[in-house]
Amino acid sequence: MMFEKLRERWDLKSSWQVIIILIVFACTGFTVMFLKEPILSLIAAKEERNWVFTTVYYILILPVYFLILLFYGFIFGQSKFFLSFVKKTLNRFKRDK
């Protein structure tokens, strides 16, 4: 079952916890989606946006996404999981020297 695989992969205690975590990811995605247009409208008109602008937006929205993810994780009682998730994700961006 899909929930069991996710539970094992994420080292969670129950399938219910997997459901809550998936809800947090969904809430975060919807929030970022709803915030996109108002934020972009403050910066530039729709006609003025090009692929460079869009690329820069996606790079800059990443920290906002993580903050929203941590916020929802806290609200749903999964802050420990999401703090660890964000740390692991950010560590993947670091370059080995």
Rank of each mutant, 00 (worst) to 15 (best):
M2A: 12
F3V: 10
R9T: 15
L12F: 02
L12V: 05
L12Q: 08
K13R: 14
K13W: 02
K13G: 13
S15E: 15
S15T: 14
V18C: 08
I19N: 08
I20K: 13
V24D: 08
C27M: 14
C27V: 11
T28W: 02
G29N: 06
G29P: 08
F30G: 10
M33H: 14
F34N: 00
E37R: 15
E37V: 06
E37D: 03
E37C: 02
P38W: 00
I39L: 12
I39G: 03
I39Q: 05
S41E: 13
S41G: 15
E47K: 15
E47P: 07
E47T: 15
R49W: 01
N50K: 05
N50W: 01
W51R: 07
V52P: 04
F53A: 05
F53P: 04
T55F: 11
T55R: 03
Y57F: 15
Y58C: 01
Y58V: 02
L62H: 11
I68P: 00
L70R: 04
F71I: 09
Y72V: 07
Y72E: 07
G73E: 11
G73H: 10
G73D: 08
F74V: 08
F74C: 09
I75A: 00
I75E: 01
F76Q: 03
Q78F: 01
K80C: 01
K80S: 01
S84L: 04
S84W: 01
F85S: 11
F85R: 12
V86L: 09
V86Y: 11
K87E: 05
K87N: 00
K87F: 08
K87R: 07
N91M: 10
K94A: 10
K94T: 14
K94D: 10
D96E: 10
